[in-house]
């Protein structure tokens, strides 16, 4: 197990080793529309579409080379949309695909990928049921945005700069790593004229999803324009970075519940989170809405609380005399209606 196979490249096309192999083939971007590349282009378009639309790419293929070449092509197609939201969704989809494959991988190969593609410090161990020791800084970089308490460093086995994890946990950490590396990779590209129709087709199917979705909120019940700046900021953060702290999530969900948004609407906003889990989110939102558990409806935090925790993003003109974000929203909605 010292060299990479073509199958490995197809599985993990974002690794520098795979990129080197692609370079060595000497395929240029102009050749993509030639008949012999038809399958690559077709897979790339599907890959980009699936990725942006559903944030999922099914890890199933029969030809390794087609699968591998479709990756840089899909990245180029998504880049040319010049839509940050699409890029983020696509990066998440590729990262999830890698996660699924890594879960099935043997431990030596997982270590090799982590070391060679991402420069991790990682080694196999046998310590109280843990199988891997990951360098502290690589652990923190990828786990510090997770919210489940078992990921918190304080609840981990930490020794001499290494954090002990299971294989499944290492695969999950690598998902974050893949996503971040991919996001860094998008840059403006000039695709040849012959590919433009494909880009336009893709744009037609997935472009402007974010705009569509914010209009959608407006059309339903929620008045997007009337949202206070603190709440808008959390929505923006989720859509741009895919991350939000526990308090940010609670603030947003409890605010939207109080502002009469439907559970489905709220879930659609949370869908932008990189660790989004529909079942769990639905449960939590319903809990906050008082539809479950103790049946108490939680009210959103006041301006004071938001300030203590650094979630108040400062003033805009409607914040005057307002001590609660809901008061802002009522005031702003009325003004808008007149």
């Amino acid at each position: 197990m010292t060299s990479w196979s073509k199958r490995d490249f197809a599985k993990y096309p974002f690794s520098p080793q795979a990129a080197e192999f692609v370079d060595s083939l000497g395929v240029t971007i102009d050749q993509l529309t030639s008949p012999e590349m038809a399958r690559v282009l077709e897979r790339a378009i599907n890959r980009a579409k699936e990725g942006v639309k559903y944030a999922v790419i099914e890890p199933k293929w029969d030809d390794d080379l087609v699968e591998l070449l479709s990756f840089p092509t899909a990245v180029a197609l998504v880049s040319s949309l010049q839509d940050r939201y699409a890029e983020r969704r696509y990066a998440l989809a590729e990262a999830r695909r890698a996660h699924l494959l890594l879960q099935e991988e043997d431990i030596e190969k997982l270590i090799k990928l982590a070391e060679q593609a991402f420069g991790w410090k990682i080694r196999a161990v046998d310590d109280e049921g843990f199988r891997l020791a990951v360098g502290l800084l690589h652990y923190l970089r990828n786990a510090s945005s997770f919210h489940d308490p078992h990921w918190k460093l304080v609840n981990r086995e930490v020794k001499l700069g290494e954090v002990f994890v299971t294989k499944a946990e290492a695969a999950r950490l690598l998902q974050e790593e893949v996503q971040r590396k991919l996001l860094e990779r998008f840059k403006p590209v000039q695709l040849p004229e012959s590919l433009q129709p494909y880009v336009e087709k893709l744009r037609g199917e997935v472009g402007g999803m974010y705009t569509e979705f914010s209009e959608h909120i407006e059309l339903e019940k929620l008045n997007y324009d009337a949202l206070p700046p603190c709440i808008k900021n959390i929505i923006r953060k989720i859509s741009e970075t895919g991350h939000a702290s526990h308090l940010e999530r609670f603030t947003l969900a409890s605010f939207l519940v109080a502002a009469n948004a439907s559970v489905d609407e709220i879930i659609s906003i949370f869908r932008g989170l990189s660790d989004f889990d529909e079942g769990k989110t639905r449960y939590q939102v319903e809990h906050i809405a008082g539809m479950r558990g103790s049946r108490t409806k939680y009210s959103p935090p006041s301006c004071d609380t938001l300030k203590t925790h650094g979630l108040c993003v400062g003033w805009d003109t409607r914040c005057g005399g307002v001590r609660h974000p809901l008061a802002y929203y009522m005031k702003a909605s009325k003004k808008g209606a007149k």
Binding site: L140, R141, S144, S145, P149, H150, K152, L153, V154, N155
Partner: peptide, 24 residues
């Protein structure tokens, strides 16, 4: 290059913030 979130995790570790005796 550690980001703010990672530094916060380090502080929480030193202070024992979020420590879960059951999990440990």
């Amino acid at each position: 290059s550690l980001d703010q979130q990672s530094r916060k995790e380090i502080v929480d570790y030193l202070l024992g913030v979020g420590l879960d005796f059951k999990a440990l």
